[in-house]
């Protein structure tokens, strides 16, 4: 049992959360708490500031951007009508990975981004997503990969550009355990003959593979998969070697591109 001196706070607004964070030593902000309380988090925080009542679980439009609140759970992502377009299927695919698990109703978008190896980062990068943060100095926008929070900041939301309604997207990942970080996540979006690609888990930080992106050319799916495996810069850690990750991203790329490409393009090759 942790120390009896620890406290739990449930602020009603993001501003209250930021104020608490500034005044409590050893406090941690939690969305789903799956990392802060689990062994994966690497040490229990002294105090918990729970954002579950701070109103950060909304999905809606902010101008041309689709805004997803930081405490939106994987289950709510999966079920929200705004995310049902084929162009956003990559996000749905990753959120759906957690579907049969109880953690789906607890794990949040913000928590996934904070891990640094979250499997949602790659699909979000396809849509030029950025994080909206709130801290002692006010609100600011920041890249999601790498996501660098200043001291005392919390994530309010992630904003993205959904793009063309005709686009198709998808995502594939490989992980050792159902809820552990993915070794490799590859996301792709096909809009006409234009292709976007992003990886997370395999590299630190996650990134778009912009060198490869652009017009779908006459190369075969297998050749494209080989090119993707060639350009990634895999990390080497206890979960998998760099060579293994490189091989696996090629496998996932072939599966994903076969799934996404229009039949006429697939049959050419």
């Amino acid at each position: 049992m942790p120390s009896q001196a620890a406290n739990y706070y449930r602020p009603q607004t993001p501003e209250m959360a930021v104020e608490l964070l500034a005044n409590l030593q050893g406090a941690a902000v939690i969305g789903g708490a799956t990392l802060a309380l689990g062994k994966l988090g690497g040490g229990r925080p002294s105090h918990l500031i729970d954002l579950c009542d701070a109103g950060l679980d909304r999905i809606g439009w902010r101008g041309h951007h689709l805004s997803i609140g930081a405490t939106t759970t994987m289950r709510d992502l999966r079920r929200h009508p705004e995310l049902s377009a084929p162009g956003l299927a990559a996000i749905m695919a990753m959120a759906g990975h957690f579907e049969p698990l109880p953690v789906a109703a607890q794990a949040t978008l913000g928590g996934n981004l904070c891990t640094g190896v979250g499997s949602l980062v790659a699909p979000l990068l396809l849509y030029e997503a950025h994080a909206v943060l709130l801290g002692p100095d006010g609100e600011r926008h920041a890249p999601i990969a790498p996501l660098r929070l200043h001291p005392g900041e919390i994530i309010l939301s992630v904003e993205l550009e959904p793009g063309s309604p005709m686009a198709r997207s998808g995502c594939q990942s490989l992980r050792r355990t159902p809820v552990g970080p993915a070794l490799v996540t590859l996301a792709a979006l096909v809009d006409g003959d234009q292709l976007r690609l992003a990886v997370s888990g395999i590299e630190a930080p996650a990134r778009r593979l912009r060198d490869l992106e652009g017009r779908w050319d006459r190369r075969s799916v297998a050749q494209w998969a080989e090119s993707i495996a060639h350009v990634v810069r895999p990390i080497d850690d206890a979960r998998g070697s760099a060579d293994y990750r490189r091989a696996m991203v090629g496998v996932l790329a072939e599966r994903l591109l076969k799934e996404l490409l229009p039949t006429e393009l697939r049959e050419v090759h």
């Binding site: 708490a33 994966l40 729970d50 109880p102 607890q106 355990t177």
Partner: peptide
């Protein structure tokens, strides 16, 4: 058992919703 929300040995229902007790905040 695992303490990481993976194995489900600590499953319980909170207001009818299944949670993994090892990663669910007590005060929630």
């Amino acid at each position: 058992a695992c303490g990481e929300g993976i194995c489900g040995a600590c499953s319980c229902l909170v207001a009818g919703e299944r949670v993994h007790g090892c990663i669910y905040p007590a005060f929630r």
